[in-house]
């Protein structure tokens, strides 16, 4: 096992508003890390700095041994290897489901159109949507959209995937399908960082759970440690609120 991602003293501010106040985190290959914490604690912002959708204010991010602060680094190449799944799916509205999945491998010259099509059909089958290849994204339910988004990310054959609240915008009955796909990925050894409010998923799938609040990592440990025996007062308060509804 080697470190896929190493984060040192990461900070992010918007003007005078400090969102991340110095975070350290190492994620190993094949590891599934689940981040939990109250809204506004900086979980999503943290995730978005990892592929530089947000530019960090200070600190260091090392992906596969490449320091992202290095001016010579081609961020596009780094991003090819870091998949991302968004809360609001962000499927390309101007393309069909199949074209969504095929777009980046074809545009970036990884596959020709024929091969990309075969690959896309395979991936859609894997997320249970093989019949939606020619569908318009608008005709899909939220859960279906999110599964297409996961297939789209997988098309780039990423080393790791960042999930930014992937089930928060879904109707409750859709959540299970998406989580099932994610569990499969975890089982196949995908390195994953998941920001979520699905505590069941965290308990069952995570190798490590991280609790964030106020721009800091307050506590981390195995699911058992965090959920059965939390040490930090803020962690206890948070779990009390979300587990006893």
């Amino acid at each position: 096992m080697s470190a896929k991602i190493q984060v040192n003293q990461l900070q992010k501010s918007y003007g005078t508003n400090e969102v991340l106040k110095g975070l350290d985190l190492t994620v190993q290959e094949n590891e599934v890390v689940v981040m939990i914490g109250p809204s506004g604690s900086g979980k999503s912002t943290f995730l978005r700095t990892l592929n530089k959708l947000e530019e960090p204010t200070a600190g260091q991010i090392i992906v596969d041994g490449h320091d992202l602060n290095d001016a010579k680094i081609n961020m596009n190449h780094v991003r090819e290897k870091i998949g991302m799944v968004f809360q609001h799916f962000n499927l390309f509205n101007n393309l069909t489901v199949g074209e969504n999945v095929m777009l980046s491998p074809v545009e970036l010259g990884k596959l020709n159109k024929q091969d990309a099509k075969v690959e896309a059909k395979d991936l859609l089958k894997r997320v249970g949507l093989e019949d939606k290849f020619d569908a318009n994204p608008k005709s899909l339910s939220g859960g279906q959209k999110q599964r297409v988004a996961i297939a789209r990310t997988l098309a780039m054959k990423p080393d790791m995937i960042l999930f930014d609240e992937p089930t928060s915008a879904l109707d409750p009955e859709m959540v299970g399908d998406v989580l099932a796909v994610m569990k499969d990925l975890a089982k196949d050894g995908m390195t994953m960082i998941v920001v979520t409010h699905e505590m069941g998923f965290a308990k069952e799938v995570a190798d490590r759970v991280i609790f964030m609040a106020d721009g800091y990592i307050m506590e981390e440990g195995t699911p058992n440690e965090i959920f059965s025996n939390p040490q930090n007062k803020r962690t206890k308060e948070f779990l009390n609120k979300v587990l006893n509804v």
């Binding site: 290897k81 998949g83 962000n90 777009l103 780039m156």
Partner: peptide, 29 residues
């Protein structure tokens, strides 16, 4: 929607390609 550009960039598409293939077709409409 900003998310369209973010999704395209997160897949490794350079700005110009993302603009041409994803943003402009939607903007034109």
């Amino acid at each position: 929607d900003d998310g369209q550009m973010e999704a395209a960039r997160s897949l490794g598409l350079p700005y110009g390609k993302a603009m041409r293939r994803v943003i402009l077709p939607q903007g034109l409409k």
